[in-house]
């Protein structure tokens, strides 16, 4: 990253406690606009909690989050999505009973505006908006490579397809920052290579990406910068090369009997 763009996401001193347990402690992150930013760490390091704090699903106990220069700390998830931050979930949360395409159309919700009147009376404006939303959704499905599965019920898709469908749905919200929670989990080598390509193509659309991932091959190949979380604290941050060489990180991964260790680069 050579350009000094203003950061899309700035996290300062973010902290969250559950009862007496500190899940995330004093974490600082700066994601530059246009970057692919990796978040790694052993299981239970607080990565998903950090995600939930950033996307508004959990209120933080302390600290602040700025998105595109505006404070979003404590805002509701739907407001944050409307402002341009989208996410996927570690344990895939699709609308299983709806078709793949309908899932993505739901994603266009916050970029459309027709209400009860428009829906019921099919006003000219509402019809135009609907046509655009469905076209947009089809385009996003094509983009993630699910163009031939539009009418399949989302719940019946294969695991890797569900992960890509979730990404298409998130893209349909028109994000400036896309947060992916372990998108390569459960994918085979071919699929994770396709995922790397997909995320690059997302970046090429000018969308910044924040990604939690266990698969070191994916992380090291994809990310411009990486932050390492351990026991809720930020252990290190740097380029993939720097992270690979960082003794603290090696210690955190190899020093633990953790499945992440044998995936280590």
């Amino acid at each position: 990253m050579t350009q000094e763009a203003s950061p899309i996401l700035e996290v300062r001193g973010l902290t969250r406690t559950f009862g007496g347990l500190v899940a995330v402690s004093e974490v600082d992150l700066t994601v530059p606009e246009g970057a692919i930013f990796g978040l790694i760490g052993p299981n239970g390091a607080g990565k998903t909690t950090l995600f939930n704090l950033i996307t508004g699903l959990l209120p933080p106990s302390g600290g602040s989050v700025n998105f595109a220069g505006r404070p979003i700390t404590g805002r509701k998830p739907h407001v944050i999505t409307q402002m341009g931050m989208a996410r996927t979930f570690q344990n895939i949360r699709l609308f299983g009973a709806l078709s793949a395409l309908e899932n993505v159309v739901v994603g266009t919700h916050c970029r459309t505006s027709s209400g009860v009147w428009g829906s019921v009376f099919r006003t000219r404006r509402a019809r135009a908006e609907e046509d655009e939303a469905w076209a947009r959704a089809r385009a996003e499905l094509e983009f993630v490579g699910l163009g031939d599965l539009m009418d399949a019920p989302a719940g019946g898709l294969a695991y890797g397809q569900q992960r890509r469908l979730e990404i298409a749905r998130a893209l349909a919200t028109g994000p400036r920052l896309l947060c992916l929670d372990e998108p390569a989990a459960g994918m085979n080598e071919t699929e994770s290579q396709e995922l790397i390509d997909l995320v690059r193509r997302i970046q090429a659309r000018g969308i910044s990406v924040l990604i939690i991932e266990h698969d070191m091959h994916v992380v090291m190949n994809l990310c411009d910068r990486i932050a390492v979380l351990n026991f809720g604290r930020k252990l290190a941050e740097g380029t993939p090369a720097e992270i690979r060489a960082n003794p603290d990180v090696i210690e955190a991964y190899l020093g633990r009997d953790d499945d992440a260790a044998d995936q280590g680069a």
Binding site: L57, T81, V106, G107, H109, G115, A126, E130
Partner: peptide, 20 residues
């Protein structure tokens, strides 16, 4: 339409609906 999709999304998964 859009309102009905929002209803369906909320019925199936409130958290995912919020994230949309």
């Amino acid at each position: 339409g859009r309102v009905g999709r929002a209803y369906a999304a909320i019925r199936i998964d409130e958290i995912a609906a919020e994230a949309m």
